[in-house]
Simulated assay, not measured.
Amino acid sequence: MEMPQKAPIGRPRGFDAEEALERAMRVFWEQGYEGASLTDLTSAMGITRTSMYAAFGNKEELFRKALRKYAEGPAAYVARALEEPTAHEVAAAFLAGSVRTTTRPDCPAGCLAVQGSLAAGAPARPARDTLAAWRDESCSRLRDRFQRAVDDGDLPPGTDTGLLARYVMTVSNGIAVQAAGGALRDDLQQVADMALRTWPPA
């Protein structure tokens, strides 16, 4: 006689976790870490606080997961830019990606990695630390790519690759702040183009 199958332990979530995370990402993107209340998040995600904690952990953990989703989605231009054949093209693609992502009509203006860190209260410290580490990693990846360009003869010997990477990151972050303030895509692309006019010759 065939034994009946046991019911799975625990109840199914009853919601699309990826869709809920996408919605949480947009709330953090628009309101920053501290500005996004649990009510804002759960309302946008369409779930209860209990379901949020069970699926994603606390607010800090949810933010980290939302940031990873942002890095793999809207901010995926960073990884693509690093694959460009020359250092100048890397910087151009990086800044153009920043302009496009921060001015998308179907998304919040600005950059989650910048918006999320513009809070000053002590409760936001973990988020600020997470974002600082994320930005530092992006800067390090740019620096390593520019060092490879020096080794390949694409950038002049003696180029301060760390400073060059920070320069590109600073322009990118400035673009995000301007976009959040309502600056237009074409105007911000002109800023990116101007920044690249001082690029070191090979």
Results as ranks from 00 to 15, higher is better:
residue 43 S to N: 13
residue 145 R to K: 05
residue 108 P to F: 07
residue 71 A to I: 07
residue 191 V to P: 10
residue 120 A to V: 11
residue 140 S to M: 11
residue 28 F to M: 07
residue 50 T to M: 04
residue 111 C to Y: 08
residue 172 S to L: 06
residue 159 T to I: 05
residue 9 I to H: 12
residue 191 V to T: 15
residue 85 P to E: 04
residue 2 E to H: 14
residue 90 V to N: 05
residue 60 E to P: 00
residue 71 A to L: 11
residue 135 R to A: 12
residue 194 M to D: 09
residue 40 D to M: 06
residue 114 V to K: 13
residue 109 A to P: 06
residue 25 M to G: 05
residue 138 S to I: 11
residue 154 D to P: 13
residue 143 R to M: 15
residue 42 T to G: 01
residue 178 Q to T: 09
residue 39 T to C: 00
residue 129 D to G: 02
residue 4 P to F: 01
residue 24 A to Q: 07
residue 124 A to M: 12
residue 133 A to H: 09
residue 95 L to E: 09
residue 138 S to G: 14
residue 109 A to K: 13
residue 86 T to I: 13
residue 168 V to Q: 08
residue 200 P to L: 07
residue 87 A to E: 01
residue 156 P to F: 03
residue 167 Y to W: 15
residue 151 D to F: 01
residue 124 A to Y: 14
residue 183 A to D: 03
residue 155 L to A: 09
residue 19 E to L: 12
residue 116 G to F: 11
residue 148 R to C: 01
residue 156 P to R: 09
residue 184 L to C: 04
residue 202 A to P: 15
residue 32 G to V: 07
residue 158 G to W: 07
residue 158 G to Y: 05
residue 85 P to D: 05
residue 1 M to S: 10
residue 86 T to G: 05
residue 183 A to M: 04
residue 2 E to S: 14
residue 105 P to F: 02
residue 108 P to I: 11
residue 177 V to E: 07
residue 158 G to M: 03
residue 108 P to H: 07
residue 134 W to Q: 14
residue 90 V to M: 08
residue 35 G to L: 06
residue 43 S to T: 14
residue 81 A to Y: 05
residue 49 R to C: 00
residue 43 S to M: 07
residue 6 K to P: 09
residue 81 A to M: 08
residue 49 R to Q: 06
residue 160 D to G: 07
residue 25 M to A: 15
residue 181 G to E: 11
residue 187 D to A: 13
residue 11 R to Y: 03
residue 120 A to I: 11
residue 149 A to S: 11
residue 176 A to L: 09
residue 38 L to K: 02
residue 33 Y to K: 05
residue 165 A to D: 03
residue 94 F to M: 09
residue 76 A to W: 06
residue 181 G to D: 10
residue 178 Q to N: 10
residue 161 T to Y: 06
residue 101 T to R: 15
residue 158 G to I: 05
residue 162 G to R: 14
residue 23 R to V: 04
residue 97 G to Y: 03
residue 68 R to T: 12
residue 74 P to W: 10
residue 115 Q to L: 10
residue 140 S to G: 14
residue 51 S to V: 00
residue 82 L to M: 09
residue 61 E to I: 00
residue 114 V to A: 15
residue 147 Q to I: 01
residue 63 F to Q: 05
residue 72 E to P: 03
residue 55 A to S: 10
